[in-house]
Design a protein around this nucleic acid. Sequence first.
DNA 1: ACAGGTACTTGACAAATATCAATCGAAATC
DNA 2: GATTTCGATTGATATTTGTCAAGTACCTGT
Lengths: 231, 231
Amino acid sequence: MPETYRAEIRQLDLFADMEDSNFETLMRGTYVQTFPPRIDLITEGDPSDFLHIVLSGSVDLFACWNGRETSMATVRPVSTFILAATIREAPNLMSARTLEKSRIALLPSEDVRAVFDTDGAFARAIVRELAQCYRTVVKNTKDLKLRTSLERLANYLIRHSARTASSEFELNMEKRRLAAFLGMTPENLSRAFKGLEPYGVKVSGSNISISDPDDLARFAKPDLLIDDYST
Amino acid sequence: MPETYRAEIRQLDLFADMEDSNFETLMRGTYVQTFPPRIDLITEGDPSDFLHIVLSGSVDLFACWNGRETSMATVRPVSTFILAATIREAPNLMSARTLEKSRIALLPSEDVRAVFDTDGAFARAIVRELAQCYRTVVKNTKDLKLRTSLERLANYLIRHSARTASSEFELNMEKRRLAAFLGMTPENLSRAFKGLEPYGVKVSGSNISISDPDDLARFAKPDLLIDDYST
DNA sequence: ACAGGTACTTGACAAATATCAATCGAAATC
DNA sequence: GATTTCGATTGATATTTGTCAAGTACCTGT
């Protein structure tokens, strides 16, 4: 594996503090592959053979049941997915596909578990990562159960606006995926955008501008315990 | 702290493998308290001062936003809650209240973090616990996003029936809480029970009987990747 | 430039779900 | 035993959300 990838992975919180020898053990079985867009990486129910790390590009985590499909999360560089399944040696709960051309590192789950069993620093790093993931999903559940779709969209836009530190920005995913992520149909998302017009939200293609952020916030009522993805 | 509690806690997966001396450190600051029903233990947003362990009774984890409230989970003996917030030294995302008279052990979060930093076995146990919690919340999200309320209720009943290994059982919580947990209103839950009558679900107070489990399952389409809480 | 596909939008309609008000019924209190 | 209280139910209605069937706009590849 090229040295540049190795250095990139080593710098991740997850691997930064572990023993050199253990890191080497992990890297020995690791390979990095570039995938085209829209490639299925994982199907839910499959055994978790590899811990995946997104080095570049982006990956959609989604789930299906009874012919329906929903988007659960987007993984962007540099972070991992399928960590919980790897640790528990359990089937993946979500499927994954590339959204664009993406470079993915694949670490054999067996190796991850083996190193995890002996390297305390690695175990602690995994704890922090999992605790973060857990809290993100809990926030998501609160968003889904406590808010209407219009409120979810309004808060999503406010979060996005905060991330880009700008009241005008581009949606970084297709509206159909955004709709699935927010738990609604594409048709409903269209109408929800219309429904936010009175609060100063202007939509033109994937370009969003918020003319009066305070007005939108009065409607959306963003809450640190739902919308702050930093803790 | 009485020796019986100590032994009870020591046997938990979370504490079973750690160093004796570290366990002693943890227990030094721990106290056990009995709470009456309907007592608030934690309010969301509060700092996570204590890791809580339910020794007996049961605890409702719930969340609020904008005057609305929903139930997120029920914690039953013997397990912990507020683990992720403790580890990340972050505010609690959920509130907690006793459902009945309950014995709760309280471990100072600082001590938990200190021992976590030095005891690899403890860190590994936390990983397994958190990975489990994470997967549970993911399953919950899939349930919410991919199923209608009628389907959620049907699958809940099937899971409950499987847990008690019987086609007749008692609901172990108020219907209003069940409604909140399933993401619907109490009125809707009443109607949902009626809606399941054609599939052989009979309700009398909190007593549920399923006359034709296969018929109900054909409607509910239970799925290991949503409904199996063991992995 | 054009054709074809795909995402997005819109309108009409249907289904699901929430809300409000009233009532019922069982458990708790006096 | 009567009363009170509170959760559960029911009916009527409103709102939200989804579905279906167009039509439009945009991108892509030839």
